[in-house]
Design a protein around this nucleic acid. Structure first.
Lengths: 126, 126
DNA sequence: CTTGACATTCACACCAATGGAAGGGTTTCA
DNA sequence: TGAAACCCTTCCATTGGTGTGAATGTCAAG
């Protein structure tokens, strides 16, 4: 698909898609005229990238862990140097820490909402 | 405690602590001489703030949810306007989305690590 | 030929964070 | 008492990262 379709399907500006490509997060083939030609899988990939960015991971790290996230479960063993493995383990642990932090705080927010009487399913008797 | 101690205990520069105060994320009493006097609870508070920032929440949002996160369970009902409640519910849901995204991707990273034979320090006889 | 989608490139905006200088007061300890 | 270490404020500039705007040009189709 071309960039316009990918943009619509991911609700991501063309500009940003080109930026992600420039940053090495996604790739595209080119049509004869130079237009980008995206694989179907790029839709999920872009959403995934945006999710991770939204969760605070920098592009540099996302680029690093992308090889682990290929939907095609073709794992590239040859690239698994000890240094890279260590970096991945570190990042995995950092993600766990992030998750815990978010869970704790989300739960606190949720408790607060309940305590002050919010979240009454579909506002029954407002 | 004074700013130096808080800085050491949170591994956060004095500069940044003053910045957070300027941004309205934390508060301090003042000694007679003008020195900031921090409550013991600020240690956790600062760590919490840094965790949330690291998880991708902007200062603006963190400031908004801080009232829900007071360790003193004094909840300020009077401030719970419907608009604020709606904003909180939205933010709660966004945090949940973040958590799910991180979980999915962390698990993928973890699987990859196992697949390429990492993490054997912890489990020698894999 | 006009319209819309595509291309590239430079510059800018926003946010978190930092650095540093100026210029001054306070605490601690030998 | 003197020095070092700590603290204060204000101001200004900068860095790094994510994201955007706008100018300018090409391509394809009605």
């Amino acid at each position: 698909m071309r960039i316009g379709e990918l943009s619509r399907r991911t609700e991501t500006s063309r500009r940003l898609l080109r930026y992600y490509e420039e940053q090495g997060l996604i790739f595209s083939d080119r049509e004869a005229n130079g237009y980008r030609d995206y694989d179907e899988g790029l839709v999920d990939r872009v959403l995934q990238i945006r999710g991770l960015l939204g969760a605070g991971l920098p592009i540099r790290i996302i680029k690093q862990i992308l090889p682990c996230l290929r939907e095609t479960r073709a794992i590239f063993f040859e690239e698994a140097t000890p240094e890279m493995l260590a970096a991945l383990e570190e990042e995995r642990d950092r993600m766990t820490a992030r998750i815990r932090c978010l869970e704790r705080n989300r739960d606190a927010v949720a408790e607060y909402i309940v305590a002050v009487g919010g979240d009454q399913l579909a506002r029954p008797a407002a």
